[in-house]
Structure formats: C-alpha cells, structure tokens
Amino acid sequence: MDRESERSLVGRLRAGDPAAFDVVFEAYHRRLHAFLARLTRRSSWAEDLVEETWLRLVAHAERLDADTRLGPWLFTVARNLHTSAWRARRLDAVLASGGLFDGRTMAAPSASPFETAVADQLQERIERALQSLTAPDREVLLLVGVEGFTPAEAAGICGISAEALRQRLSRARGRLLRRLGEAQHGPGGTK
C-alpha cells in the first residue's frame, strides 16, 4: 500500500466510510491474526485480541492523524493488547504446555510432495522454536522477520528505541537459532 493510497484510506476512515474499512480489513486481518496467534500461542485468544484491535480502530477512526501509517498503528494496538492480556492472564505460564494454533494453520504452497514434507518439517521446527522463546523475543522476530516491518517501525510498535530493538532482535535471533539447533541435535548437541 503506497503512502498516497494510505492517506486517502485514512481520510475516508475518519469520515466513516465502510468501504475504506473493508480495504484495511482485507489488507491486515490475516496478518494481525497470524501475529497474535504466534504471540499468544493460542488461536482462540488471538481471535479475541484481533477483534479488540479492530474495534479500537473503529473507536479511534475519527481521531486518526492524516498521515497515520495503518500497519504500524494496528500492530501497535495489537501488541499492546497482547501485553495487557499477558500480564492479566499470565499467558506464558498457563500455555507452557499448550498446542500450536489449535491445529488451524495454512500450508504454504510448494512444488512437490517431497518439498512440501521438507518445508512442513522445517516450518514446524521453526514454529516450535519460536513458541519456546519469551514473548519479547517472539514479538521482535515476528514483526521484523515475519511481518516485514523495518527495524524503525518495529521499534515504534514495541515502544523502544531503534538501538534497543536492534539488540533485542540480535539476541532473539541467536536464541532462536540455538533452540533450532537443540531441536535437531538435543540440548548441548553438536552439528
């Protein structure tokens, strides 16, 4: 979405245009849900949080700045809602033994059954390794690695400085790689 279309969408949202809402919903609903599902580790709670995110957008639509970046705005709200829910429910403790997205995932398209199987195994390893990380590690990896936000945008979403984000991202990548290695070779194993 280029800046001009985004500005126009924001203007229409401020005026209460439901067609503009449809465009934004189409562009971000799946992404927000995937982000929150990986962050919460539970699809049903992700559904609740993504619902609250959209309701917040509607409630604040008239007060949006003309140059609001909708992606970062929505992910900031989603991330803050997750942080509040995490504090309130202590999600990590409750879900330490929880499942992966309630089993509802979408397979990525692949060229052959062999490639599909390899890709599925690899993705499952990454998903499991991601789930074993702490919420702050997961959120930076998801925002930059999965959602494609720039480090500056991700820093804004997380409410931290760009330098702090760079350090957190670097540590999170290191921990993810270690978990992936452990999953393959066992803790303390060699390649």
């Binding site: 995937a34 509802r104 979408m106 790689l177």
Partner: peptide
Amino acid sequence: MTIEDGDLGGLLGRLPVCAPDT
C-alpha cells in the same frame, strides 16, 4: 538440515499464515 543465521530471515518470512475463523 542445519539452519544458519543467514537463512533465518527468509525462513521466517515464508512461515504460513495462520487462518483466522472466517
């Protein structure tokens, strides 16, 4: 298959999108 640091960005970017309740 060993995953190196350089592969990580691409692999994360290709993770499938979890389907929401339609």
